[in-house]
């Protein structure tokens, strides 16, 4: 469990990545954040991550597509979806497509941290 996690954050609203990155780095994990999903996926293709946290709504490539592409590259990766404010219904499709869990905005970094910890446990076991 002490293994450092490689976490990727994808969100086209910069506030999310900007605030999340330092919060998640606090525990020593390695975090990269992207505003451009396309660049993020290119990066992922060159090197897989343990955890991908992605917003579901993005202009060019949306979260579901990120989810599909990530899982097709690496089924070990756990994908966590950030959904919009009070839009749980949207999470349905993501879960059906194999997302590990979802979190609705606004959220506390510690809430996300809890999900990441659970995800890490699963991939370890």
């Amino acid at each position: 469990m002490d293994k450092k996690l490689k976490i990727m954050i994808i969100d086209d609203e910069n506030i999310v990545g900007k605030r999340l990155k330092p919060a998640l780095e606090k525990t020593g994990d390695y975090v990269e954040s992207f505003e451009d999903a396309k660049k993020a996926l290119e990066r992922f293709n060159s090197e897989p991550f343990d955890i991908v946290v992605t917003d579901i709504r993005m202009d060019e490539i949306d979260g579901l597509e990120v989810l599909e592409q990530v899982l097709s590259k690496s089924n070990q990766t756990k994908v966590i979806i950030i959904t919009g404010y009070a839009t749980v219904e949207v999470a349905r499709e993501a879960l059906a497509k194999g997302a590990f869990d979802f979190i609705a905005k606004p959220f506390k970094p510690s809430d996300l941290r809890a999900i990441i910890d659970r995800a890490a446990k699963r991939s370890a076991s």
Partner: peptide
């Protein structure tokens, strides 16, 4: 609560 700074929110939250 969101003002206390622990949360991550965006402009959309305020509009909502």
């Amino acid at each position: 609560e969101k003002m206390r700074g622990e949360y991550i929110f965006d402009r959309q939250y305020v509009l909502s």
